[in-house]
Design a protein around this nucleic acid. Structure first.
Lengths: 131, 131
DNA sequence: TTACAAAATGTTATATTATAACAATATAAC
DNA sequence: GTTATATTGTTATAATATAACATTTTGTAA
């Protein structure tokens, strides 16, 4: 695996140490003191980091999270759980699930090479808060 | 099932007769001749139509498609196949898949009440074009 | 059939997310 | 060292989505 460029490293570090998914303009705000001034600089780094699998985009939230799976280099099979109350997002790493979905074939004969799955619900903390 | 309001009906009809997912501002452009002038009017109708399950949002494309499943009223379990070449989107209606995912429990103890799954690949047409 | 509540509409302004286009610089491969 | 590729920098703008407020319509029940 090649090294990250300067901007890529700055932005990856920020996302990687964040406990929650970060949005592009929040990232921009946080890295301005490090010399990254324009949205495009952020989006370019994000695109590359997604491409090489260091981060994932949470599509329903337009936000980015570091890959939790140390062996994941290219993101062809992603699954996340999202708490609709506190917005906590966790990457699901379940081999049964990934086997099932990677092998899934629909009747239309289309062969899939990638998928993204987002589960929504309430996390344990938020369930107990409400009861 | 209650009837749709005027704006909801106009926008649903447009989406329903479209062979491909439609984006909000493309919808806006197409319904201006019918008196819907502002983005918010479109987004409000879209929100409601999604809520009652008449349409789904394709998150990775920011586009909307009519529900293909006649029995689907509330969209708690959605799955789509997306061709990365021609962008054709099809709703997957596979009871094995939906049973598997609806029953899925992760080790974190979170209970899911909704999911959205997007598969990516090449459709039959696009595969044969390339060979 | 009025009155009340809920849903939907209309309108202007603005926030948020993302890319186009072009020039310059750095890095890797040969 | 030269060339190709990736990355950066910069300005402008496109595309997606919501805030806030006023008004009208619709459904429900007294």
């Amino acid at each position: 695996m090649q090294n990250l460029s300067k901007n890529q490293q700055i932005i990856f570090d920020l996302i990687d140490k964040s406990p929650e998914p970060l949005k592009a303009y929040s990232i921009l705000f946080n890295v301005q003191k490090r010399g990254i001034k324009a949205p495009l600089q952020v989006y370019r780094a994000l695109d590359k980091l997604v491409e090489i699998g260091k981060i994932h985009k949470i599509e329903s939230r337009n936000a980015f999270i570091a890959c939790q799976n140390s062996s994941c280099q290219i993101s062809k099979a992603t699954a996340f759980s999202i708490c609709e109350s506190c917005e906590k997002v966790t990457e699901i790493n379940n081999s049964n699930l990934s086997k099932y979905l990677t092998g899934f074939k629909d009747k239309n004969g289309m062969k899939y090479n990638k998928y993204n799955l987002e589960f929504f619900g309430l996390c344990k903390k938020c369930i107990s808060k409400k009861s």
